[in-house]
Amino acid sequence: MAEPVRSLLLAGVGGQGVVLASMIVAETLLRAGYDVKQSEVHGMAQRGGSVFSHIRFGPAVESPLVPEGTAEVLAAFEWAEALRWLQYVRPGGAVVADVRRVVPPGACSDRRAWLSSYPVIDATVLREREVKAHLIDATALAADLGNVRAANSVVLGALAAYLDVGRDYWESTIADLVPRGTAEVNLAAFRSGAEAPAALIDLPAPETGTGFVPARIEVNESWCKVCDICSRVCPEYCLDLDGDTRLVVVAPDACTGCRLCEMLCPDFAITIHHEGQVPALATTGAGP
C-alpha cells in the first residue's frame, strides 16, 4: 500500500476563524507538495455554532472527510469543541486546544439548578483517551502579542509541531492568507505557539450547584390592576394576562425567585416566597 492519506481536524466556534485557519493548513500542505482535500460547512453553522474542518493530505486523496479515530491532530480553538471531536483522533494522536471557553447561551439555560452544561476544563479527560494533550492558553499568548484575534495562529503553531512540514511553508502561507496588516502579529503568534512547551494546563473546576432556592409567586388579585408590567419583565415568562382582566401565573415552576415582578409591581400585588433561606439582599452601590 502506498503512503497513506493523513487526516487533521480543526474545530472551533462560528466566528472564530476556523475556515481561514484550515485554508492556511491546506494551502501549506499543498505548497509542501501534498494532494489536499479540505472540507467544511458554511451557512447556519457559522452563526455561533460548532464549526469544524476536515483536512486530508497525502499523495492522492479521495474522501475529504476524516473517518472517526483516524486524525493525527485535532486542533481546537475552544475547549468544548476539543471534546466534541475527540473521537476523530486516532490512538496516539494529538489534541492541540486553546483553553478558551466560548459558552453558548444554551449552556446557561438550566435556571432551576443553575448548573452550566459547559464542560469543566480538565486535562484528565484527554489523558484517558491515549492522546497527546496539548492545552495552551492561546488567547492569552495572542493578547500578549497585542491582538487576541491572532489566537488561531498560536494554535496553528502548536499544530505545526506535530507535522513534518517545513516552517517556511507555514510562514509564507500565513503571510499570504491572513488579513492585510496582520501578517506580523500572526507570524509572531504562530512562532509563539510552535515554541510554547507542550504543557498541560489544568484549570480549576468552576463552582457548580449554587444552592437554588425554589420560589413561589403569589398574586393579590384584589390589589392587582392588570397593568402588564410583571408579565412583560419576567425572564421566565411565568406570568401572563388572561385577556385584559386578570393576571395569571402560567408557569409557576419556572420561577427563579428573581423578584423582578415583585419589585416592579406598582400595586404591591405580587409576593415572591422563597421556600428556604435566601441570602440577604446585597447592599451594592448605585452603579457607576
Binding site: W223, V226, C227, M263, P266, F268
Partner: peptide, 24 residues
C-alpha cells in the same frame, strides 16, 4: 389599599423602592 393610582403608573414601584430603602 389598593391605592388610587392608574394601572401601569410606576409611582407605586417608586414607593416600593423607597420602602425597601427604609427597610434596609
Amino acid at each position: 389599599m389598593p391605592h388610587v393610582l392608574c394601572p401601569g403608573c410606576a409611582h407605586g414601584t417608586i414607593l416600593r423602592a423607597f420602602l425597601e430603602a427604609v427597610k434596609r
